[in-house]
């Protein structure tokens, strides 16, 4: 009897420590990634990296100024397309929707959210690149925008739902129309949540490489206007990492550190702000 109890207790301790070990392994992965990138990329993040164009293939030196600006331009396009559609669509779901339409919209949004990013790239290629026969910033921005929509839509809906009913009723009781209630009471109350959600969506697509490979393509020079191929940090990291030159590898590490830094800092800031306010979003 005692022996059996001892056995059960040791299994208990063993398995519980194993689960702790699993958690430890998972968490330490994050610190390992961060530490390794900082160690390897840190020394190559310098002034040249942010201000110079890439040198011709095979020469050492140069930077990634065009890719940094390019990523910025692509994200701007993505936000211009993705945020309005997601925001207004989410507003419909939370405020005006009946039963059938919101169900269909929610379902398709979740579907879009699960589509692999490379397939989104094919879609953008088919509708933007094929008709005009060349790669462009617009195509890349469109692909990233499509990826943002479901995230912005669902979180807008959730944050609008989280606004207390009494606030709506208060405005209505004062004689405000429904639209007036939404625009000057509900939306401001939910605005911080929605803004942070949009930033999280932006941070997520900022690191996307696959949908840009055959939409924005890449460019070793500046890309004036919006209808030419354009460089971006993630694609640059990919190209440089699989390329044959030592100097490219160094710059890939530096670009990786910059990209990871941007993504993680946005995430940390936004999530900390979020946890101090309205209800947290579901993952």
């Amino acid at each position: 009897m005692n022996l059996r109890m001892l056995w059960r207790k040791s299994v208990n301790v063993l398995m519980l420590s194993l689960t702790g070990l699993c958690a430890l392994v998972a968490i330490s992965l994050l610190f390992f990634i961060l530490g390794y990138l900082a160690y390897h990329g840190g020394k190559d993040v310098n002034w040249d990296f942010f201000t110079k164009l890439p040198k011709p293939v095979g020469e050492t030196g140069g930077g990634m100024a065009n890719a940094i600006v390019g990523s910025g331009k692509l994200l701007l396009l993505a936000a211009l397309f993705g945020v309005p559609v997601g925001l207004l669509g989410g507003m419909y779901l939370a405020e005006f929707g009946g039963r059938a339409v919101p169900f269909v919209v929610r379902y398709t949004a979740d579907l879009l959210n699960g589509v692999p990013s490379i397939v989104i790239g094919i879609f953008a290629y088919a509708v933007v690149v094929m008709p005009v026969h060349h790669f462009s910033s617009l195509a890349g921005g469109f692909a990233l925008g499509v990826m943002m929509i479901p995230i912005v839509l669902r979180s807008t809906e959730e944050f609008l739902h989280a606004v207390p009913r009494s606030m709506r009723e208060g405005a209505m009781a004062l004689g405000a129309s429904k639209w007036r209630t939404i625009s000057s009471v509900v939306l401001p109350a939910a605005s911080r949540g929605i803004l942070t959600a949009a930033l999280l969506a932006l941070a997520r697509v900022a690191g996307e490489t696959a949908p840009l490979l055959f939409t924005a393509f890449g460019n070793r020079f500046w890309s004036p206007g919006w209808s030419q191929p354009i460089a971006s940090l993630p694609v640059m990291i990919f190209t440089y990492a699989v390329g044959p030159y030592e100097d490219w590898h160094r710059q890939a590490w530096a670009a990786g550190l910059v990209l990871l830094g941007l993504v993680l800092v946005t995430n940390i800031v936004v999530r900390t702000l979020l946890s101090r306010g309205t209800s947290p979003p579901r993952s």
Partner: peptide
């Protein structure tokens, strides 16, 4: 959640 946010190319 931060670990989930690390881009695939990294």
């Amino acid at each position: 959640d931060l670990l989930a946010a690390v881009p695939s190319v990294i």
